[in-house]
Computed example of a mutant assay.
Amino acid sequence: MAKIPDPRNPKKIKHQMTVMMFYGIFMFVFQMSSRRETNQEMTTPQLLENLKVLFPELTAMPHQDTLCRLLEKIDVAQIENLYINLLKN
């Protein structure tokens, strides 16, 4: 995930790219129906503590609007290529 180029302004980055991408993946895996539901369900203190075990650098959960803005700017082909390379190795 860290190999995906980050299109955001480096001076305004609060959440690392890896955290943002996994947050989007969790939204998909947990079948969240909306960004509002995701903000309510995935920002609980217990979930944050559990995720800190996997991501020690996690200090807070990103807002869904932040993830949406990031995904609007990312080149999807880069994500797809990284995924294909991961499966090949």
Results as ranks from 00 to 15, higher is better:
Gln31Asp: 12
Asn39Thr: 01
Met27Ile: 13
Gln64Tyr: 03
Asp75Cys: 07
Val19Gly: 03
Ser34Thr: 08
Ile4Asp: 03
Ala77Thr: 11
Asp6Gly: 01
Leu47Lys: 15
Thr59Tyr: 05
Pro5Trp: 00
Glu49His: 12
Asn39Trp: 11
Met32Thr: 12
Ile84Met: 05
Glu41Tyr: 10
Pro62Ile: 04
Ala60Glu: 15
Tyr83Ser: 14
Glu37Ile: 10
Lys3Arg: 11
Pro56His: 03
Thr66Gly: 01
Leu86His: 11
Ile13Ala: 07
Lys88Arg: 08
Ser33Ile: 00
Leu71Trp: 06
Arg36Glu: 15
Pro10Ile: 00
His63Met: 07
Arg69Trp: 09
Ile25Asn: 11
Met32Phe: 03
Ser34Pro: 04
Pro5Lys: 01
Ala60Ser: 15
Ile13Gly: 04
Gly24Ile: 05
Pro7Asp: 10
Leu54Gln: 15
Lys12Thr: 14
Asn89Trp: 10
Phe28Pro: 02
Pro56Cys: 00
Tyr83Trp: 07
Ser34Gly: 01
Gln31Pro: 02
Lys3Met: 06
Pro5Cys: 02
Thr66Met: 10
Pro56Phe: 00
Ile84Arg: 06
Ile74Ser: 00
Leu48Arg: 09
Lys73Glu: 02
Thr59Ile: 11
Ile4Lys: 00
Leu48Trp: 07
Ile79Glu: 05
His63Cys: 06
Pro56Gln: 00
Phe26Tyr: 12
Met1His: 05
Val29Thr: 13
Ile13Val: 13
Asp65Ile: 11
Lys52Trp: 09
Gln64Lys: 04
Arg69Phe: 10
Gln16Asn: 15
Asn39Arg: 06
Lys73Asn: 08
Met42Thr: 06
His15Glu: 06
Ile74Gln: 00
Pro62Phe: 11
Leu47Tyr: 15
Asn89Gly: 13
Ile25Pro: 04
Arg35Ser: 14
Glu41His: 13
Met27Ala: 14
Met1Ile: 07
Phe55Trp: 00
Pro10Asp: 09
Phe28Leu: 10
Asp75His: 02
Lys88Met: 04
Leu86Gly: 05
Gln40Met: 03
Asn85Lys: 08
Met32Tyr: 03
Thr38Gln: 09
Phe28Glu: 14
Thr66Trp: 15
Asn81Lys: 06
Lys11Phe: 08
Thr44Glu: 09
Glu37His: 03
Glu72Ser: 06
Tyr23Gln: 09
Pro7Gln: 12
Asn85Tyr: 10
Leu82Pro: 04
Asp6Ile: 01
Lys73Val: 04
Leu70Ala: 05
Phe28Cys: 11
Asp65Lys: 12
Pro45Met: 05
Gln64Gly: 14
Arg36His: 15
Leu58Ile: 01
Thr44Trp: 05
Asp6Asn: 10
Ile84Phe: 08
Phe22Trp: 13
Lys88Asp: 03
Met27Asp: 08
Thr43Lys: 07
Ala2Pro: 13
Pro5Ala: 02
Asn9Ile: 03
Thr44Gln: 12
Gln31Phe: 05
Asn89Lys: 11
Leu47Ser: 11
Ile13Lys: 04
Leu67Asp: 07
Met61Gln: 08
Met32Ile: 07
Val76Pro: 08
Lys14Phe: 14
Val19Asp: 01
Glu41Val: 06
Lys14Ile: 13
Met20Arg: 04
Leu58Val: 01
Phe26Thr: 00
Glu72Ala: 09
Phe26Asp: 03
Leu47Arg: 15
Gln16Arg: 15
Val76Leu: 08
Leu71Asn: 12
Gln31Val: 01
Ile74Val: 13
His15Lys: 01
